[in-house]
Every structure is written in C-alpha cells, then in structure tokens.
Amino acid sequence: MRSFMLRICFAVLIISTSCSARSEFQIASITGTVTDVTGAAIPKSKVALEPTNGPVIKAITDNAGHFEISAPPGEYILTASAVAFRTTKKAVHLSAVAPATRISKHVHI
C-alpha cells in the first residue's frame, strides 16, 4: 500500500511540474506596420522589442512595412527606426491570456 501511495504522489508531482513548466514558457506575439506620417509603409525598418530585463528581440519589416515578433508575456518597449526617419518608441504589454497583440495604430516614424 505504501508503495502504491508513493507512486501516486510521484505521478502528481510530475503532472504539476509539467503544468507549471508549460505556463512559464508561454509565447505571445506582436504584429504591426511601420509607416511614415503620410501612412506610407517603410520597408526594411528595424523593429526591436526591449524587455525590462533580458535580451532585446529584433526584427526587420517586410516590403509592406509589416513585422511580427514572438516573445514571452510581459512589459516591453517597442522601438522602430529607419534611415532618414526619427526613431519612435512605444510601451506595449504582451499578454499570456491574449497571445496575439496587434498594434492598433501604425507605428509612425
């Protein structure tokens, strides 16, 4: 009986460890478009997602100015820059509850 109880406790421990590990590694994403003040897309812009602690995640926009970055949920500063344009920064929150975040307004630079 004691051996049976130890096996059940061990199984419960493994299951609870798996659940907490899965929640720690959730990934959210942010998508958007980098445009100038007239609304024209700026291709090949540099976009960076800077966490409060940890490495900066970088991306380059496509020919239509679109970008997508995946990162763990948390608070970030989104930075967009391009040659001959001013750099723009915007605070963003990536949520584990809503794993896809879309910048509702274009990131103007």
Rank of each mutant, 00 (worst) to 15 (best):
A100I: 14
A64T: 15
S81V: 00
F67G: 14
G74W: 13
T87Q: 07
A91R: 12
T88K: 11
P43R: 11
S45Q: 00
A98Q: 11
A100T: 15
K46E: 09
G54L: 02
A84W: 09
R102W: 02
Y76W: 05
K44C: 00
S104H: 04
I60P: 08
E68V: 15
T52V: 04
A71I: 10
K44R: 13
I42E: 08
S95K: 05
I60E: 14
G39Q: 02
K89Y: 00
K58V: 10
L78R: 03
S95N: 14
T88W: 03
A84L: 13
T52F: 05
A96G: 13
D62I: 13
G39N: 00
T52C: 04
V83G: 01
I103N: 06
P51D: 01
A96K: 11
N63W: 10
I42T: 07
I77Y: 03
A98V: 13
I60C: 08
S104R: 04
G54E: 01
F67W: 08
G54M: 03
E50S: 06
P72Q: 12
P99G: 09
V97N: 10
T101E: 09
A64F: 15
N63D: 15
A48D: 09
A91I: 02
F85T: 07
L49V: 06
K44D: 12
E50L: 12
V56Y: 03
T61H: 11
A80F: 03
V83W: 05
K90G: 02
S45D: 00
K46A: 10
A48V: 07
A48T: 10
P43L: 07
I103W: 00
A100H: 13
I77D: 07
E50V: 15
A59M: 07
A84Y: 12
S81R: 01
P55H: 00
P51Q: 01
A100V: 15
K46Q: 09
A80N: 03
H93W: 05
V92P: 12
N63V: 15
T61V: 12
V97S: 14
E50N: 03
P72C: 06
V56M: 02
I42G: 01
G65C: 01
E50H: 04
I103H: 00
S95R: 09
E75W: 06
K90H: 08
K44E: 08
A41G: 04
A80Y: 03
A41V: 05
P72F: 11
K90D: 06
Y76H: 07
V56A: 04
L94M: 08
D62R: 12
G39L: 02
T88I: 13
N63K: 15
K58Y: 10
E68H: 14
L78G: 04
L78N: 03
G74P: 08
P51G: 01
A71S: 14
A82S: 08
H93R: 13
G74L: 13
F67A: 08
T101P: 01
P55N: 08
A100Y: 06
T61Q: 11
I69N: 13
E68L: 15
T88M: 11
K58R: 14
I69E: 12
R86K: 15
P51F: 01
K46V: 04
G54Y: 03
N53V: 07
A59P: 06
V92I: 10
R102G: 01
P73F: 09
V83K: 13
I60W: 05
I57Y: 02
G74F: 09
V47S: 02
A82W: 03
V97E: 10
S70Q: 12
A71T: 04
E68P: 10
K90W: 05
A64C: 14
P73S: 09
H93D: 13
A59N: 05
